[in-house]
Nucleic acid binder design. Structure first.
Lengths: 337, 337
DNA sequence: TTGAAAGCGGTACCAG
DNA sequence: CTGGTACCGCTTTCAA
C-alpha cells in the first residue's frame, strides 16, 4: 500500500540505510558486490526515493516556481511550455502559479512559493513586489525576473529589447505612408510596456512625428480577454470618433489585441491595411493565419524559455555572476500594414 | 540568511515547538495569552512554515501533478489556467509536466511525480500507462484521468460527450446541404479521438450517409504545431486531388487545425463555406475572430478545470465514491459552414 | 568500505 | 493547556 522507503531497501539488501544512500548518490566508494545487492533490492521493491525527504535533509531542491499572470495568452503559455520542456531535461520540476494580474494575489502566491520550499523563483512581469523579492534573497532563494527589468541588484532579468523594436516599427510604418501612429495597449504598468511606451515616444521623435497623448489608447480591461476586449474597445472607439480624427496606424501591445481590433474595423466597414494599418506583438502562431495576415513582432518564446533555464542552472551554481539577458525582437511584415 | 524555523519561533515565544504547531494548526486548545505571544513571535520573525517538512511528517500533501502533452495549444493551456486558478483558491499548488505526446516520456514524468511525493495526479489524454497508474493506486496516490475515459476501476475520469456532438455536427452539416463529410484529425490514439471517430461513423449511418475510409485524413505530425501542419497537409491534399474527389465538408479535430486548413483552402482559391464547409473543435477564443468566423464545438475549458478541482477535493476526502463526469459540448454555428 | 547516529523542520501522541 | 519526545525518509559526518 505505502511507498517503499530506503529502510526497506536496506533491510532487503542486508545493509544500512547510509550504504543505500551512498550507492544511489555515489557519495562514497561501495564495493561492487554490495552495490549489486542494493541495486537488486531497489529493483525488487520498486523503490523510488522520496524527493521531499531528500530536499528537507540536503537543502537542495530541484523545483522551480514559475509565477506568471496566467496561461490564457499564448505568449506565456508558449514560454512556459518551452521552459517546462527544458526543465524536464535538466531534471527540474516546475510549479506554476498564476497571479491574474493582481498584486495582492502575486504576493500571496510568492508566500506560497516560500512555504513550498521552492528552490528557484521566476517572476514574469509583475510589479510592486520588491519587498517579497528581497525576502527571497535574504533566505537564500534565488529569483529571476522575466520579461521585465529589475531594479534590485543581485536579481538578474531576461527581457526583450523594447527600444530598438519600437523604432523599427515606427519607421516601417512611416515608410508605408502612415502619418499618425496610435498606441493601443493594456495598462502601462509592467516594465516591458513602460519601455515600449518610452520607445514609442522616442521613435516618433526620431522619425519627425509628433507625440500626441490622444493617440494613446489604454483601457484597464485590456489585460484580460485580449481578443474580446480589444474588439470591444475598438468598436467603441470607432463608433464615437470619425476616422479622420483617429490614427491611421496602430501598434497593439499583443497579437490578440490586434486581431480583436481588426475584427472591429472589419465589422465597421474599414479595410486593412488601406484604411488602418495594424501591428501586433508576439508573433503568436495564429497571427500568420488570420485575414489579413498580421504584421507583428517576433518574440522568440522558445528561446526565452531556454535561456531562462540556462539562467536557473547558472544561478544554482555560482549564485553570483549571472548576467542579464536582452533578447532581440524583429518585425515580421505581413499584410496588415 | 536562512528561513526561520518553528524552533526559533518557539524560543522567541518562550514555548515549545509543539505549542507553536498547535496554535498554527488549531490542533489543541491553547490559552489566548500564549496564542497571542506565539502570533507575535511569528510576525516578528516573519515565520512561514515549511510545507516540505510538514508533508513529510503528516503524509498530507497539497500539491497536484498535472500531466499533459504540453501547453502549446489553447485547449490545454486554458484548462490548466482555470485549474491553477481554482487550485489557488483551495490552497493547492500545481506542478505541471509535459510529455510532448511521447509515451516513454510520459512514463518518466510519472515516475518523477512519484519521486516528488505528489498528492494527487491528473493525467490528460495519454495512453498505454495502465501499469504506472496502478502503481500510483497501490501507493495510495489518487489518479484522475482527464479528457479521456478510463478502463481501470477506481480511477475516475472527466471528459466530453463525444458521441452526441458528432451526431449534432453531421446532421447540421447535412442540413446545410453538404454531402460528403471528411474527418481531418491527428492520430486516432487517444480515447477522446477514438470516441469522436466512432461517433462520426455512427452519425453518418444515422443520417443515411455512407462511411468512406477515403474521407478520413490523418497524419502523424498533426498533433504538433496544429496550425502549420494542418495548413501543410491541406495544401498537399488540395494539390494532389481534384475538388470533386474530396469531401465538401470537413470536421477538424481542433480549431487550430481548422484554421490552418482554411488558410490552405483560401490560398488555393477556394471559398468557405461555398466550396468547403469547415467545423473545428474547442471553440478557442480565436475561432470567433478569424475570417470567416469558424463554426466549432464549444468545449468549456473553464468548466473542465473547475470540475477537475472538485474531483480532486472529493478524492482527497472520500477516496472512494468519485463519480465520472461527462461534460456536454455544443455546436457553435458561425460562418465557416 | 560500511555501520551507527545525528539531524532537516515539522506533527502527533502522551504526560502532567 | 502545555511540555517532552518519537519519528517522517533521507543525507551526512564520524568511527570502526
Amino acid at each position: 500500500m505505502k511507498r517503499t522507503t530506503i529502510t526497506q531497501v536496506a533491510k532487503e539488501a542486508g545493509v544500512t540505510i547510509g550504504t543505500v544512500s551512498h550507492v544511489i548518490n555515489g557519495t562514497a566508494p561501495i564495493s561492487a558486490e554490495t552495490t549489486e545487492r542494493v541495486r537488486r533490492a531497489i529493483k525488487a521493491l520498486n523503490y523510488i526515493p522520496n524527493a521531499t525527504a531528500k530536499s528537507l535533509r540536503s537543502k537542495k531542491n530541484y523545483t522551480i516556481g514559475l509565477m506568471l499572470p496566467n496561461l490564457n495568452n499564448s505568449f506565456h503559455s508558449k514560454v512556459a511550455s518551452a521552459f517546462i520542456d527544458k526543465a524536464y531535461i535538466e531534471g527540474y520540476s516546475v510549479q506554476i502559479h498564476g497571479y491574474e494580474y493582481s498584486l495582492e494575489r502575486e504576493r500571496r502566491e510568492l508566500e506560497r512559493l516560500e512555504r513550498n520550499n521552492i528552490g528557484t523563483v521566476i517572476i514574469f512581469n509583475g510589479y510592486g513586489d520588491e519587498r517579497e523579492i528581497k525576502n527571497f534573497l535574504q533566505k537564500g532563494i534565488p529569483v529571476i525576473l522575466a520579461d521585465r527589468s529589475s531594479t534590485i541588484a543581485q536579481v538578474p532579468h531576461i527581457k526583450f529589447d523594447n527600444h530598438k523594436i519600437m523604432l523599427d516599427i515606427v519607421s516601417a510604418l512611416q515608410k508605408k505612408g502612415y502619418q499618425r501612429i496610435g498606441f493601443f495597449s493594456e495598462p502601462i504598468q509592467l516594465t516591458n510596456l513602460k519601455e515600449r511606451f518610452q520607445g514609442y515616444q522616442e521613435a516618433l521623435k526620431k522619425c519627425g512625428l509628433s507625440f500626441n497623448p490622444k493617440d494613446v489608447f489604454v483601457r484597464d480591461d485590456l489585460c484580460l480577454d485580449n481578443l474580446k476586449n480589444g474588439y470591444r474597445y475598438m468598436r467603441d472607439i470607432l463608433s464615437i470618433n470619425e476616422k479622420k480624427t483617429l490614427p491611421d496606424a496602430w501598434i497593439a501591445s499583443s497579437d490578440l489585441l490586434a486581431i480583436g481590433m481588426m475584427r472591429a474595423m472589419h465589422e465597421c466597414g474599414y479595410q486593412i491595411p488601406a484604411d488602418f494599418g495594424v501591428v501586433g506583438f508576439d508573433n503568436t502562431e495564429i497571427s500568420g493565419y488570420v485575414n489579413p495576415r498580421l504584421t507583428t513582432v517576433e518574440q522568440n518564446q522558445i528561446l526565452l524559455g531556454e535561456k531562462l533555464m540556462e539562467m536557473v542552472k547558472q544561478i544554482n551554481c555560482d549564485k553570483k555572476s549571472v548576467e542579464n539577458i536582452s533578447l532581440e525582437q524583429s518585425l515580421v511584415i505581413r499584410e496588415s500594414c
